[in-house]
Structure formats: structure tokens, C-alpha cells
Nucleic acid binder design. Structure first.
Length: 484
RNA sequence: GGCCCCGUCGCCAAGUGGUAAGGCAGAGGCCUGCAAAGCCUUUAUCCCCAGUUCGAAUCUGGGCGGGGCCUCCA
């Protein structure tokens, strides 16, 4: 089974065959840095993070480029409101973005270029388009002539006549066709600008991604990703300006992630129903957020809600509790004492995981397989005289190791189970009106009562703690506790 | 108005022609002094109607419901 991916360009899944065998060039549209990132940005970046990780796991040498858009109308406006320079503003939010992504546990892309550092490339590309007759200068602006590019709208599958009939496009008097889009914008007073053959100005929104993509990945590359909302106009325009300039196919596979909804509605800045990553991380561990996002297929819409995040926490807790049990048991069974070559459970799990991921990065199915792996592991450990059965211990060890290996591909299980559970427990305890010392004292009192066979008192203590949100866990090793 | 997507168990969510993964919640059982955790068992014929097919949640047509893009947006 080989990797198949859903390509927006062709509207279906197809085998993934990179332009250069063994190597992958991947470009993902980053953020416009004028505000804090919301959960939608988290989804897009986490999705492409696991695509990046899975391609590497599959043996590809991946060059992953993710840009910062650091020159734009919104940046200029926001900077003016705050009375600081565009550069100051964008630097502030680049740093905030980097912090958010680091907290979410994302791998760093190979390159993270900024639009403002590629002005010469952008200008060269615009010049080429003018020379090719695909673009024209008009009062210091430069526009791409959409009618000059026959394949225009092939990605979003529309047609020009219908779009113009939509009549929601104000005909710019500087444009020949209202659908033409800006490659270069003449500077207005007070705006950041660069010298160009058309006077002082700045790049349009779309051209930077074409310029940077080609700069780092070549005129044609394998994967270009982003949110569904970028299909039109952003990616459509990227294709037009890139292919019109080079005469070559720009990107082989276009991948787009679905939206994050709130109450079944798209979350967006204009609706004001968005949650920032920072807000969410105050209440939920980053790995819970990641687990929540990966529990649905990346192209499906996903509904953001407190209840769904709590479910994600429960699911992830099940993994970590199973892993902790395994860690404890395995620590007592000397490594390698069990028979070699008998443990196929880990390999089977990995095969299923790969099969799921090979099918257009089906993380939801892959996680389902991992859940089954946990159950298998728990079942083995619950077997009588488990520790003396070398083949079973070997299976658990194999599964345990597979979890960290496969979890790594999803960016999960990066913590020691014990530490993660303890951290969750302490965070939850902070909301309760009881301290660890009080709990320990109650457990000690109950232990005494139990030794005295005073089960009425023992149960009374347990009920009292339960009312305060504490659940006791008796085991052969003693009594532990967790938050209800 | 044009284009597009979705509708699977109480909830979340896989599954694109071969007889419905998984998680949460629920029920019964094992275990336990009693519990909890864990394990075992158990819970759906896939919005409605018609059609194609030996066979459809999966394909076609119609209907109902929800959403997206067409303007900045992950």
C-alpha cells in the first residue's frame, strides 16, 4: 500500500508520487502576522505538521516551507492604530506565532521565509509576467490579466463569466478586467514600500507565495497546503501567476484542511466567534488540543466546543493511563528476558497505522487503531501471572514501544505517562478545594480503617473524598487517586 | 443567483460497491471487603423516496435539513 492523497486540483484521491523520487517539496501558507492565532490556525498548522512528520516517517526527505506574511493592509492598519511601525507589529506577532506553535509541539519547518525578505524575487517575478504579456502596469500598480491565462479558476472550478455576473466585485478603474488582481501596489503615504520599476510600492498578497515557493522549492514542487478558504482567490491566483511566468505546472498536489466551526458555524474573525490558541491553552494541555484536532479527518469540518475538548482529554487520558501501567510493569520485567521474535503485536499495530495514514492521512482511523492497541495491552497485562509469561511481556513491550514511535508521528505521547497524568491531576486539583496533603491524610486514615476491618468508616472516607471530586484507586501497590 | 460540501448508535467519529472501526456515555458480567480502574459481553442498516446492481451507508435522480466559497480569512 502506498500513500494516496486527496488533490483539490483533481477533486479526488490519487497516488502520491513526488517529482523527484524520495524527496518532497512542500509549501504551506502561513499567517498574516497582525494578531494572535486562533484555533483555526492551530488546526491548519497541526494538520500539516503531521503530514510533514508522516512523510518523513515514510522515508521521504522533506523540505517544508511555511511563510510569514509580514506586509499587508491589515498589518498596516493595525500598526497605525497602535502608533507603531508595521515592522514592529509583525515582529511582535511572529514571535507570538512561534511561541504558540512551539507550545502546540509543532516541528519547525525547514525554512520560514518572510515576504519582506523576498522583495527582489517578487519584483523579478512581476517583471517576468509583464514581459510575458500576462500582467500590466497601471498608475504604479501592476495587475495580473486573468483573461490571459486559460487555466484560470481550474483549482476552484468556477468560470469567469459567472463570477463577474455575481456583481460583488467593484470594478477598479485601474483594472482592465474587474477580476484582475494586484501583483504590486503603489505605495500610499506612510506605508512601508520598496523601490521597483513601477515606483515605490509593495507586493500584492498572492505573489509572495509564488516567489518564495519557487525560491526554495523550484518552479514546480510537490505539495502546497493551506485552509480551504485559501482555494479562492489565494491559491487560484498563485497558480495563475506562477504558471503564467514559468509555463510549467506550479504544484502537483494541492491539499486543503477543513474549518474549525463553533456551534456548526465557521469560526472567523469577521464573525467574532473565534478562540485564540492562548486562551485555549489556559484550560487545556496542548496535547489535548492536538488530539482533538487529529480525532477527525483533516478535510472534515470540526466543531470546537468545551465538551469536545473534554472528550479529547478523556481519550488521551485512557492512552496515558494504559501507558503508565505498562511502564510500571515493564520496569519490573528485565528487558530482553522474554523470548525474541515472538511479539508481533507491535508490528501489526504499526501496519494498521500506516495503512490508515496512507489513505490521505486518516488520523481518525489511525487513532482508532491505537485505541485497540491500548485495549490489547491492557488485556495482556490483566492476564493471570502475566509477569511470568515471557511472550506476553514481550508483546506488551512491543506495543508500548510502538506507541511512542507511532505517537511521535502524530506528535503525541511526547511526555512520560506518569508526568503527563500528574500534571493533569495537579491542574485539575487547583480548581478543587482540597490539597494533596489533605488527600494523603484521608488515604492514610482510610488505610487504617481498612486494616481494622472498619469498612463503614473506610467507605465513609471514600465517599467524602468523592464528594470533593477525588476518586480513590486501590491496587496491590497501595491506594492512589485521580480527579473525577 | 452561481459553484461546492455534508447528513452514520444518546454524543464525537472512521468507513466511496461486498454486507457498519474506535472513543465517550449506557446495560450486564469478571475482578474487589465494597468500589474505582482494567478486562469480557452488549447497543445502529447508515435523513427520506425512487432507481442502477447479484449486492449500496457507499453510484444515479428527486426531496428535506445543515454548512462553505463567490470579499480579508487556516
Amino acid at each position: 500500500m502506498t500513500l494516496r492523497v486527496y488533490n483539490t486540483l483533481n477533486g479526488g484521491k490519487e497516488p502520491f508520487e513526488p517529482l523527484v523520487p524520495g524527496k518532497v517539496g512542500m509549501y504551506v501558507c502561513g499567517v498574516t502576522v497582525y494578531d494572535y492565532c486562533h484555533i483555526g490556525h492551530a488546526r491548519a498548522n497541526i494538520v500539516f505538521d503531521i503530514i510533514y512528520r508522516y512523510l518523513q516517517y515514510s522515508g521521504y526527505e522533506v523540505t517544508y516551507v511555511r511563510n510569514y506574511t509580514d506586509v499587508d493592509d491589515k498589518i498596516i492598519n493595525r500598526a497605525n492604530e497602535r502608533g507603531i511601525s508595521s515592522q514592529q507589529l509583525s515582529e511582535e506577532f511572529i514571535q507570538a506565532f512561534d511561541e504558540d506553535m512551539a507550545r502546540l509541539g509543532l516541528q519547525l519547518p525547514t525554512v520560514q521565509p518572510k515576504a519582506t525578505e523576498h522583495i527582489p524575487h517578487i519584483i523579478a517575478l512581476v517583471e517576468k509576467l509583464i514581459a510575458n504579456g500576462k500582467a500590466y502596469e497601471s498608475e504604479g500598480d501592476v495587475y495580473f490579466a486573468v483573461e490571459s491565462f486559460d487555466d484560470y479558476l481550474k483549482l476552484s472550478k468556477r468560470n469567469l463569466e459567472e463570477m463577474q455576473a455575481g456583481a460583488r466585485i467593484a470594478p477598479g478603474e485601474k483594472k482592465r478586467n474587474p477580476m484582475d488582481f494586484a501583483l504590486w501596489k503603489a505605495a500610499k503615504p506612510g506605508e512601508p514600500s520598496w523601490e521597483s520599476p513601477w515606483g515605490q510600492g509593495r507586493p500584492g498578497w498572492h505573489i509572495e507565495c509564488s516567489a518564495m515557493g519557487m525560491e526554495y522549492l523550484g518552479e514546480s514542487f510537490d505539495i502546497h497546503g493551506g485552509g480551504k478558504d485559501l482555494i479562492f482567490p489565494h491559491h487560484e491566483n498563485e497558480i495563475a501567476q506562477s504558471e503564467a511566468a514559468t509555463g510549467k505546472p506550479f504544484v502537483k498536489y494541492w491539499l486543503h484542511n477543513g474549518f474549525v466551526n463553533v456551534n456548526q458555524e465557521k469560526m472567523s474573525k469577521s464573525l467574532g466567534n473565534f478562540f485564540t490558541i492562548r486562551d485555549i491553552l489556559q484550560s487545556y494541555d496542548p496535547e489535548i488540543v492536538r488530539f482533538f484536532i487529529l480525532s477527525a479527518h483533516y478535510r472534515s469540518p470540526i466543531d470546537f466546543s468545551d465538551q469536545n475538548l473534554k472528550e479529547a482529554r478523556l481519550g488521551l487520558t485512557r492512552f496515558y493511563e494504559g501507558l503508565q501501567s505498562a511502564a510500571e510493569v515493564l520496569a519490573e520485567c528485565p528487558d530482553g528476558a522474554e523470548a525474541d521474535g515472538q511479539a508481533t503485536d507491535g508490528d501489526e499495530l504499526e501496519a494498521k497505522f500506516r495503512e490508515a495514514m496512507d489513505d490521505d492521512f486518516n488520523t481518525a482511523l489511525a487513532i482508532g487503531h491505537l485505541f485497540e492497541g491500548v485495549r490489547t495491552m491492557n488485556r495482556l497485562m490483566a492476564t493471570k501471572k502475566f509477569r511470568k509469561k515471557a511472550d506476553l511481556v514481550a508483546s506488551v513491550r512491543a506495543l508500548y514501544q510502538s506507541f511512542f514511535k507511532l505517537g511521535g508521528v502524530l506528535g503525541m505521547f511526547g511526555s512520560q505517562p506518569h508526568q503527563w497524568l500528574e500534571q493533569q491531576r495537579m491542574a485539575a486539583l487547583a480548581d478543587l478545594e482540597i490539597t494533596v496533603e489533605q488527600i494523603d491524610a484521608q488515604i492514610a486514615a482510610r488505610l487504617q480503617a481498612r486494616q481494622d476491618k472498619d469498612f463503614a468508616r473506610s467507605d465513609e472516607i471514600r465517599d467524602e473524598l468523592a464528594e470533593q471530586g477525588i476518586l480513590l484507586l486501590d491496587s496491590a501497590a497501595g491506594t492512589g487517586w485521580k480527579i473525577k
